[in-house]
Amino acid sequence: MISSINPSIKMVAVFIPGILLGLTYDVFTPLLYFIFILTVTFTMTDIPIFRWLKLFSPFLILALGFAWMTMLYANQTFSGGDEIFSLWVFEVTAGSFQTGVSVGLRSLCFGALSLMFILTTDSTKLMLSFMQQFRLPPKITYGILAGYRFLPVFQHELQILKQAHRIRGVVRARGIKGRLNQFRRYAIPLLANGIRKAERVSIAMESKGFTGDTDRTHYHRMTVEKRDWLFFALMIGVLLGVFALSYYLGYLRIFGRQF
């Protein structure tokens, strides 16, 4: 299961394809890799498909937007070939169509990779793994975790701030000027409270003997084992394989150039 893969390794295994796919401008390569990601997602995790679809739909819209824009506005390097259809003042050629679909697919790939990562990774473990595998200084690791802890608090805090304003007799703002004023009345105290909390929580941490020293023990040991490397090899291996196959079949295009 992917949820038990070491988070740092997982992150690198997600990043490398994300970066390398940026090179391709053909349809075949990202499509094949996209299919591979879907296969991995639905065989090696237990994410319910409807939940996945719901979370994935924004990426789909985003990808469509990108694809559409690229089709309509591709420059000369990318827009060779015959005109396929035209719309109002735009004409879409085979080249720009292909580029558009490719760009769209590529962002789908990255969306699917991101989603796979987010849905199988525990936040605290990720930070602990950064500290233990990537030697992220404990000061930063725990500093980040301390800030992250305030997320649920903020919502509560906003509610209380609203109540406080009511209690003190401030009526709901009307009009643009009132709204702007209201924004200031809320945003500044919320941020100020956050900063105050930052100060207090760091005092609390230091009062528990935290020094930022890298020499500390780890209750939750994050280890890297053979299976983590296997997962890494799978993700990267298949990527290279897809590139090779695409080259072999003559589809591969890197920036406007066919290989």
Binding site: K139, L191, S202
Partner: peptide, 23 residues
Amino acid sequence: MTKQWKLKEIVLMSILGVVFGVI
């Protein structure tokens, strides 16, 4: 580099990250 930073400064960055992450 992190030696010169106080813990509270790091937490401050993190809290700004949370606030603007939400915004």
